[in-house]
């Protein structure tokens, strides 16, 4: 269990994390989603005591991180896989961590096997590792103490598709055994396939949070027609919020209502269904549009989802 309560971090006049409150529960994978620079990493660094908070508190397993007697056995942390001494071998990095936690040496071999690093790879210096290998090593370090909580910052970065699949299964299994997993990403698809709960952050503020199912449901209805302008007019008349997807409209209303509006306007539909995944992606872009560096121009009308 991870609890973040009214967390704020400001640097001079800039507020990197702005009154963030959420809980990552045991048995679930919580996805921490936001564009680059949204405050994900800062929040995670505050959780593990590397950055002091301006105000607010964080708790892991019911305690402040600094009060954990042997944090490695309770919380697995991976903040930046590249933050390792380039001159150490992968095995040595794990050995040092295992020694700090007071674990037996064989745990290192078990972990190397678990993250599929071969003995020859483990004997190489980290300088010669690919980003994917560093991520595997970082995950091995996080899992070393068999912790109940995992805090992972962009763990899928640099992994190939098979690696991402492997990590997904690993984290799923971890949560299914009752572990708490918090992982951040700026890639929606990555999070969407694995997370049970979502916390979406933009410019330091939480813009949406809830279970994935809730957020998907609130993403409305996807509707297709050959007469887009006609349907758009009808929707405006019916006072419904909607937005343009590439080849369809997404409406903030359920399918039945949208169907009725189309019917009374005499517009033939080619497709009408809950927006599902497409909606979540659009929601992400929408929620973070103001905070995004590149202005997206994909939505015709504003729609306050979530």
């Amino acid at each position: 269990m991870i609890k973040v309560d009214s967390l704020t971090k400001s640097y001079g006049g800039f507020t990197a994390v702005d009154d963030v409150t959420f809980t990552a529960r045991p048995g679930r994978v919580t996805g921490f989603l936001g564009p680059n620079g949204a405050g994900k990493s800062t929040t995670m660094r505050i959780m593990v005591g590397l950055t002091p908070a301006t105000s607010g508190t964080t708790e892991v397993s019911g305690r402040r991180f600094a009060d954990l007697p042997n944090p490695g056995l309770e919380v697995g942390v991976l903040l930046d896989a590249s933050a390792q001494h380039a001159g150490r071998t992968g095995r040595e990095i794990l050995t040092v961590a295992a020694h700090t936690m007071g674990l037996p040496r064989r745990r290192v071999d078990e972990m190397l096997e678990r993250v599929s690093l071969t003995p020859s790879e483990a004997g190489r210096r980290v300088r010669n590792y690919s980003l994917g290998m560093r991520q595997r090593l970082g995950i091995a370090t996080a899992l070393l103490g068999d912790p109940e909580v995992l805090i992972l910052d962009e763990p899928a970065n640099g992994l190939d598709p098979a690696g991402i699949r492997w990590m997904r299964d690993l984290l799923r299994g971890y949560a299914d055994e009752g572990g708490t997993v918090l992982l951040s990403s700026h890639l929606l698809h990555e999070i969407e396939v694995i997370a049970d709960d979502l916390v979406v952050i933009g410019q330091g503020r939480i813009v949406a949070q809830g279970t994935k199912t809730e957020l998907l449901a609130s993403a409305g209805t996807l509707v297709r027609t050959r007469d887009v302008p006609g349907l758009a007019r009808a929707l405006v008349d019916a006072d419904l919020d909607f937005s343009n997807l590439t080849d369809a409209l997404r409406v903030d209303a359920d399918a039945e209502l949208v169907g009725q509006v189309a019917h009374s306007a005499g517009i033939a539909l080619t497709e009408l269904r809950p927006a599902d995944g497409a909606g979540l992606e659009e929601m992400f872009l929408e929620l973070t549009a103001d905070t995004q560096r590149d202005t997206q121009s994909i939505h015709g009308s504003e729609g306050a989802a979530a």
Partner: peptide, 20 residues
Amino acid sequence: VETDLVTAVARPARPTPAPI
């Protein structure tokens, strides 16, 4: 809204580890 069943797979409570 499909209410998510909060998975009640609590791990057995562990003893607090000894300080380093």
